[in-house]
Amino acid sequence: MQGTVDGFNYGLVTPLVAYLMACLGGALGLRCTTRALVVARSWRPGWLALGAAAIGSGIWTMHFVAMMGFTVRGAPIQYDKPMTFASLGVAVLMVGVGVFIVGYRGAAGAALFTGGTVTGLGIASMHYLGMAGLRLNGTLEYNTVTVALSVVIAMGAATVALWAAVQVRGLRWSVCASLVMGVAVSGMHYTGMAAMSVHLHGSGAPAVGDSSAAVLAPMLIGPLAFLCLAGAVVLFDPLMVTGRPAARVEHEPGVPAHEPSARTRRRPSPRIPRRDLAHGHRAPQNR
């Protein structure tokens, strides 16, 4: 028997909160990746790893916040915890591979395509592995074409995000990039959910069980705490606002940043008297 699926049990609350989680993870990850490009090479792996963990945690949190609003009439839902957390590990690991490729090879050509592909496949793997951890009295079935579309959306979103992480420097543009990334990741999630149908086992009599929100909320505490920690790192790093290295030229007080200081201004060369090369004496000077 086909189950009646509702992905918006709490109305627009879960989609909006899920979207904000995707934006938060994307924004933190982009800023960390941008920061990695302006520090000493020895510090770069740490910033790239923090960026990958932020993006992966944001995507994973977005997915399961959205799943709080997912219900199947007459079938209480549980989640297999090892598989659920394995989906988080897959997200962080594969996003990390893509971030490191772009962080060291640049966001152009084959490097961008490879990094975007790996990261997009990581996002899709996280989604479907997380869905495989769902336990109910029924079977999940998927439409192949719609699943393929969701994977393409994930790859496109990842490619754009990685390109923005390297090319975008200003805070305003980074915020815009994170908003776009949130739309793409949320779009991938709900496209994947649209590909799914549920075939229930048994008569479909009403059953009693915990809600998805009650089951998932405790599992979200850890990733949410990590996102808050990453946010604190971003906020307290003075170079995170611009994503640019500190100016190497010291400016004197009162001199605008775009003008050189007195130390760096080129001093005029002393006037060298012109000589009449033909007669070997000084040329007259204008007074």
Rank of each mutant, 00 (worst) to 15 (best):
P270G: 11
I272P: 00
F236R: 11
T191P: 03
Q285F: 04
C23W: 13
P15N: 11
L24H: 06
G69Y: 00
I221H: 04
H281V: 14
T34K: 07
M188H: 06
N143I: 14
V152S: 12
D80R: 07
P76A: 09
L224Q: 06
Q78A: 14
G26I: 04
P76F: 10
L129W: 04
G156K: 01
L24F: 14
G11R: 08
G202Y: 11
F236G: 01
H201A: 10
L200S: 09
A184D: 05
R287F: 10
E141R: 14
F100E: 05
T264E: 06
V151A: 13
L129T: 15
N9A: 15
Q167K: 14
S186Q: 05
A27Y: 14
A207C: 02
G120P: 04
G89M: 10
D237A: 13
V152E: 08
P45M: 06
L277Y: 09
L171W: 15
L220R: 02
G130F: 05
T61K: 01
D80N: 13
H127Q: 12
T33V: 12
A194C: 05
I77G: 02
L171C: 07
G51F: 05
H63F: 07
P238I: 06
P45Y: 01
S87T: 02
A246V: 12
L235K: 06
E250K: 11
W163Y: 15
G280V: 05
L30K: 03
M21C: 15
V145N: 08
G89A: 13
T191G: 08
G231N: 03
A230C: 13
T117I: 13
R265H: 11
I59C: 03
S211C: 11
S87I: 00
A91C: 12
H258G: 00
M1D: 12
T33P: 01
G7A: 11
L129A: 13
M193R: 01
P206F: 15
V160K: 09
G182H: 05
M240D: 07
A52C: 07
R244N: 08
P256W: 14
T117G: 07
M131D: 06
D237N: 14
M67V: 04
F64K: 04
G209K: 11
A158P: 08
G3S: 07
G106I: 08
Y19K: 02
G11E: 04
F64I: 08
G133L: 11
L50Y: 00
N286K: 09
L88I: 07
A257K: 08
S57N: 09
A207N: 05
D276L: 05
L140D: 03
A214V: 13
R35Y: 09
G51A: 08
V90A: 13
S197K: 11
F226E: 01
P260V: 06
L171I: 14
G280Y: 02
G56Q: 05
A262Y: 10
F85W: 14
S211H: 07
V90W: 00
C176P: 01
P268R: 08
I101W: 02
G29V: 09
V175D: 04
A49P: 01
S269M: 14
V118S: 06
V65Q: 00
V152T: 13
G280L: 12
L88V: 04
P82R: 05
V255S: 04
G103N: 10
G133H: 11
R248D: 09
A225G: 07
T139V: 15
T61G: 01
M219C: 03
R267V: 09
H281Y: 05
V151M: 12
S87L: 02
